[in-house]
């Protein structure tokens, strides 16, 4: 029989490794997005900039626990941390923001609209709720082809997007089809400027799980360890055939809706509440407190992130944008329908 003391040590060891790894992605995302918003403010980014400040723990805690190259992960606008943790090269992000022709969308779409479905990360469209059923389809196809192999699929969404018909249809469909889907709902208290009491009338978003016949987990989205444990549980349940899971992370958006928005509608009371705590600061304190990392190691993580961000941005800035004259202006893939 396993010795419970050893078992605890082992769990703790696993948690410490994954917590530090996730923290690393959180720092990278924050550093990158801070740089991107500065460049945006300098007027050098065309289109909007939407950041995940305050949501990094919730975002990355999901995808660090997914199996890269096997599981499916559909990120949304606040998931810089989750994307990085799922293996998206930083240069893909830099190129998309800076309009490099070498980016994954070659200039055809911008900022957060990037992905790589070959790696299990479909490219989001703007229409909220629309990506969940696409993840359903990816899982459904693998199951039909008997290639599901314990794969799970995860889709991110915000509190506002839970009001869409697409969210309802897709979650209900996943429940009916018993798909191994995890929906991570970042309840950051606002959809643009609209507070949650204009979005839903149940006490807690997680209450909706019951109605769909799926499992629901409600967590403090500012707490890295709680996020890791909550997603860990959801992923394990989905993998073991228990059907769709929804994980609601309660937190606060520590930015405007986009970088054009200074969010005057968020009250000071809310900002200084527990929801308004910065997950990054909290994670660092906890990691140091638990002696999973020293202060110095945390500084090194930050320094390393700064180096990587600088390199990616310098590289993307040095690259040309797309050339409309030599661009392939074909929306069809079939050779016989291409011009």
């Amino acid at each position: 029989m396993a010795n419970p003391a050893n078992q605890n040590q082992e769990l703790n060891g696993k948690l410490s490794t994954i917590a530090v790894e996730t923290y690393r992605w959180m720092v990278l995302a924050r550093t990158f997005e801070d740089r991107i918003s500065n460049i945006y403010r300098a007027g050098k980014i065309v289109g909007g900039v939407y950041v995940g400040k305050g949501q990094e723990a919730f975002s990355a805690a999901l995808s660090t626990q997914l199996r890269k190259g096997q599981d499916v992960y559909s990120p949304l606008i606040r998931d810089m941390a989750g994307r990085a943790a799922f293996g998206e090269p930083l240069i893909d992000a830099a190129r998309t923001y800076l309009g490099s022709a070498r980016g994954p969308t070659i200039g055809r779409d911008g900022n957060v609209h990037r992905g790589n479905s070959h790696e299990g990360m479909p490219t989001m469209i703007s229409h909220l709720g629309a990506m969940i059923s696409v993840v359903n389809g990816m899982l459904f196809a693998r199951r039909l082809r008997k290639k599901l192999n314990n794969v799970v699929g995860a889709a991110s969404i915000g509190d506002g997007a839970t009001s869409t018909g697409a969210f309802h249809e897709a979650l209900n469909m996943a429940a009916v089809e018993k798909l191994p889907l995890i929906i991570s709902i970042a309840n950051n208290q606002f959809a643009y400027s609209t507070p949650t009491d204009r979005q839903f009338a149940c006490d807690e978003l997680v209450d909706k799980a019951t109605g769909y016949g799926v499992n629901g987990i409600n967590i403090n989205g500012t707490d890295l360890i709680e996020c890791l444990e909550g997603f860990g549980k959801a992923i394990a349940q989905a993998r073991s055939g228990k059907g769709p899971q929804i994980v609601v992370g309660n937190l606060l958006r520590l930015s405007g809706h986009g970088e054009h928005d200074d969010a005057p509608y968020i009250s000071n009371r809310l900002r200084s509440s527990n929801l308004g705590q910065d997950c990054l600061v909290k994670a660092k304190n906890r990691i140091i407190e638990e002696s999973w990392c020293s202060e110095k190691q945390c500084d090194d993580i930050q320094e390393q992130a700064t180096i990587e961000v600088n390199a990616a941005i310098a590289q993307a800035e040095s690259e040309k944008g797309p050339n409309p004259y030599s661009h392939d202006w074909n929306a069809y893939s079939s050779p016989s329908f291409r011009k």
Partner: peptide
């Protein structure tokens, strides 16, 4: 296994088709 009743969810039916197409179906 390949002729399947869908819920009355036209949005999600097409979304599912796109996901399956991404997987090569």
């Amino acid at each position: 296994d390949r002729v399947i009743d869908a819920p009355i969810s036209e949005d999600a039916m097409v979304g599912l088709a796109v996901g399956a197409a991404i997987e090569g179906m």
